[in-house]
Design a binder for these strands. Sequence first.
RNA 1: CAUUUUUGGA
Length: 240
Amino acid sequence: LFTHNVLIHAYCKMGMLERAQSLLREVEVDVVSYNTVIWGFAERELGDLAVGFLSDMIKRGVGFDFVTVNTVIMGLCKKELVQKAELLVDMLCKGGVTLDVVGYNTLIYGYCKIGAISDGVAMLERMKREGIQPDLISYNTLISCFCKNGEMDMAKGLIDELTSKKMELDVVTYTNFIGELCRKRKIGEAFSWYDEMVRSGIVPDVVSISSLIYGLCKHGKFYEAYELFRKLEDMGISPD
RNA sequence: CAUUUUUGGA
């Protein structure tokens, strides 16, 4: 079983979904086998075709779990079908199935992806109501969306909310701001966010530094960009 | 470092 799942996973990673599916039919499987194939569909932007696996699983006596539901939701969200995902969730809800924090985060991502931030924020409120505590990813997802929209004040508002909840920001939180400021060629501000990040003890990674390099290049500061690139190695980060 | 889900750059 374990071996077959490894194989299914490999097929899915290579996009050989029909192979993965035939294995699924032919061998003994469990919930992980199905989750893996559903994930494979989601990765290839075929998430809408994966919804049916839920009923297949039930027919076959394989119970689905949070990961299954979350992965199906992700597949739909990637295709900008978050509304469809919500309908599915509502249906499951009537059957007594609830979402976990990842599921809610995925829906938030789905709304952000179609540019419906207010629905994303509403989802954040809804999860609180349902007793699921939002985590840093919930907030980072919304912050990313606000930043890309140029609504930095809204994004900062969420930072305040995080702070008031005594939740720690991470490198992703900061990189959302750094990245957006770099896109807008506001290099100075980008570096001040970077400095604040380092001051609070967060170690920069390849994405945060690459954002800054991008920003410097966009600003025509090629020499400084190159200098920063050299510093990557000193910081023990390998360029990707 | 042997299997599955959510957030940041290009």
